[in-house]
Amino acid sequence: MPQPPAAATRPVTAAPRPPGQVSQQQSPARIGPYEVFQLLGEGGMGRVFLARSPGSRLVALKVIRPEYAEASNFRGRFRREAESARRVSGFFTPPVLDADADAPQPWLATAYVPAPSLHDVVRSFGVLPEPALRALGAGLAEALLAIHDTGIVHRDLKPGNVLVAEDGPRVIDFGISSAVDATQLTRTGAVMGTPGFMAPEQIVSSREAGPAADVFSLGCVLVFAATGRGPFGAGGTAEILYRAVHQQPQLDGVPQGLSPLIGSCLDKDPARRPPAASVLAALGAADPAALLTEGLREDLAR
């Protein structure tokens, strides 16, 4: 029987830490033209700060880790990805406002969305019923359409990279994952991503991860939202990655009306997965207000 891949060869992005767990003293006073207020979180690619533009607009400022900035060809990749990201214009993606690939630590600024992540919503308020899942899926599919139309593949769509705002979900962290992933692959032969939300082809060979890999991740996110767990269970990194490549997803708890669609998104063969446009069409008209449970409404109001 084939053995699970070794965990040491698959570095993954860390889940962001809540602002309350991060010392404000770690925040620089200014990055580029932006006045920095606090550290919102950090992950495998870098740190995210809440900052203010010279025109008093709040932004989320992502600063790339030094080890990537120092890597050969990273800045060129980052510049190209940032330029593409600025062309993404979908409603369900916060606009990319600015970027500097030549700064000592490259950074990218997006509009700040004052909303919790899907991960925090499910942990705090419970799993989503079918109408809410349809609204979530429609928003994410539309976001992927806008991202893919500019030639970007997200590569790290997960509950922590989905914000649940009052008027619908927002997909964040697109536009730099590809540059970091390519740099990591060049340096170590390893793949960036999050166990339980990565497509099989992304695990086996990141160079083959196209738009269909994001559709697979979308299916994983919807399973998490419906059940509170990923479709490939819990455990160590190696075990989860092995199941994603070799075993069928666990769809127990997914509403029956959505199970066939989500199952098709999770097909091992990327050629058999529906494109994001087909996922959006299959979900039909969805009401973003269905996402707003009473507890989430109160949280957003705060």
Rank of each mutant, 00 (worst) to 15 (best):
P131L: 09
S27H: 02
A69P: 05
S27K: 06
K158E: 06
A146T: 14
Q21P: 02
C220N: 07
R79K: 13
D102S: 13
G233C: 06
A271H: 07
A82K: 02
A182F: 05
I262F: 07
M198I: 06
D181K: 04
A271T: 07
G263C: 04
T93R: 01
Q202N: 09
Y242R: 14
S89D: 14
A212F: 03
P116A: 09
P255V: 15
H154V: 12
D267Q: 06
H119N: 04
Q250T: 14
A209G: 11
R52Q: 14
L291I: 01
A182I: 02
V12P: 02
L185C: 06
C265K: 04
R229Q: 12
S264Y: 00
S278N: 07
F197S: 02
G126C: 07
G175L: 05
L58S: 15
V63A: 04
R17L: 14
P159D: 08
F197Y: 15
R17N: 12
L296T: 08
Q202Y: 09
F92W: 10
P95L: 13
S84Q: 12
R134F: 05
F216W: 11
P131R: 03
P288A: 09
R79D: 10
D267S: 14
S278I: 01
F37E: 13
D149N: 02
L163W: 08
V113L: 00
G43I: 00
G151E: 14
E130V: 09
S259W: 01
P94K: 04
D299P: 00
E67R: 09
F197E: 07
W107R: 00
I176C: 03
A209W: 02
E298L: 13
I176P: 01
Q26W: 12
V127Y: 03
A143V: 07
P211D: 09
A111P: 06
P260D: 11
P200L: 04
Q38V: 13
E70K: 12
